[in-house]
Simulated scan of single mutants.
Amino acid sequence: MSEKVKFEKREELKQKPDPKNLGFGQHFTDYMLSYDYDSEKGGWHDLKITPYAPIELDPAAQGLHYGQLVFEGLKAYKHNGEVVLFRPDQNFARINQSLDRLEMPQIDEEELLEGLKQLVDIERDWVPEGEGQSLYIRPFVFATEAGLGVHPAHNYKLLIILSPSGSYYGGDSLKPTRIYVEDEYVRAVRGGVGFAKVAGNYAASLLSQSNANEQGYDQVLWLDGVERKYVEEVGSMNIFFVENGKLVTPQLNGSILPGITRKTVIALAKELGYEVEERHISIDELLESYDKGELEEVFGTGTAAVISPVGTLKYEDREITINNNETGPITQRLYDEYTGIQSGKLDDPQGWRVVVPEY
């Protein structure tokens, strides 16, 4: 272990879960990374790896009352005994963008990446090796200062917890999903916090998600918050459309999360020779494209789901079926290439994979 990161061993290790029944985010490893911030002590201090356990929090902690909480999600993979992270620098850069938006203190990205590597090295036996499996990594930061005055807190805690996980949707990871287009509520507006990965964005989506589930749909597709006609993103994913062989995705406008999987898929698609267009896309345009036979495939992208084909779209009183409710060839190719690079089964000329060393 590096002297920089303290390591507190637990007396007894947990029993690991059955790798055939991991689910998503249900099991947690033996250890977590912890870091504290105190403006009166010079900022971030006491970086350490400790046993995974409940934390003590004052009932008046400002993070509980005023929502200063941001988080990230990334994964570790194991292939031929080697454990790797996938573009972790992008996650730590994005968490700083989220922190900045909520007036929370910035982290040292290189320092936290080194701490994460050491944590994953300790827990490398928890990284599952089955198809579609990974070690899900959740960094998050929240305000701990006690007090009910509305102002940026002076004290914060950062934790990184780890969870061995199977496919996000369970079973066949490429089984097409059913998407409900929300036409009553909105997720975010430009100038707000839609581009940041903050807890409140997800809380605001739950009612619509429940309504969609009750109607037999898996996810919600959000429209813009001003004109209520431009497609933005799905609850847990960015969204792509294939029109006449060209990939089209909503352009980032301040109310859409700049997904790292989205960014990677765009780069990968261009390398594979596909044309990619980032622009405003109205729901009416999509329906017109479908009626003309030009809307060939739809898929979502996100850390948890990776690439998820969409088989059904429901908007108002109309439901359309995409590609006979089957995974399209472009979706399948991008998924195979993306996951192949992630897992180490394919070459990584871009240098996206970061090997976790043995300390």
Rank of each mutant, 00 (worst) to 15 (best):
R94K: 07
V141G: 05
E111V: 14
A143D: 08
D108R: 05
I137C: 03
D125V: 09
E103C: 15
L99G: 06
D108S: 13
L135Q: 03
E129A: 09
V141S: 08
N96E: 08
G147L: 11
E131A: 10
T144H: 06
Q118C: 05
F142W: 10
L102S: 05
Q97Y: 04
E110D: 15
V141N: 07
R101D: 00
N96I: 11
P128I: 04
R101P: 02
V127A: 04
Q90A: 15
L112P: 04
E145C: 12
E114N: 12
M104K: 09
E145V: 12
G132F: 00
M104D: 05
I122G: 00
I107C: 12
F92E: 10
F140S: 14
L116K: 06
E114K: 14
M104E: 02
M104A: 13
E103S: 14
R101L: 07
L112G: 06
F142P: 08
E111M: 15
L119T: 07
F142S: 09
V141R: 02
G115I: 06
Q90W: 10
I95P: 07
N91S: 09
D108F: 08
N91W: 01
P105M: 11
P139G: 11
I95Q: 08
L113Y: 03
Q97T: 15
A93D: 10
Q106R: 15
L113G: 07
L116F: 01
D121R: 07
V127K: 01
L116Q: 06
E145W: 07
L99K: 05
E111N: 05
D125R: 00
L99Y: 04
D121V: 01
S134L: 02
L119C: 06
I107K: 01
Q97K: 13
P139K: 09
I107P: 02
E131L: 10
D89C: 06
I137H: 00
G147R: 06
R94N: 02
R138A: 01
P139S: 10
K117F: 00
S98H: 05
Q90H: 14
E110W: 04
I107H: 03
Q106P: 09
E103F: 09
V120S: 00
R94E: 00
N91V: 05
Y136L: 08
D108E: 11
V127R: 04
V127I: 13
E109Y: 04
L99E: 01
Q90N: 13
P139V: 13
R94W: 03
R124I: 02
D108G: 08
I95Y: 03
T144A: 10
I122V: 14
V141I: 15
E114S: 15
R138F: 02
D125W: 04
A93T: 13
F140W: 13
Q90E: 14
V127C: 05
Q133D: 09
L116P: 01
E131N: 08
V127F: 00
E145M: 11
Q90L: 15
A93W: 11
W126M: 03
E123P: 01
L113F: 05
G147A: 07
F140M: 14
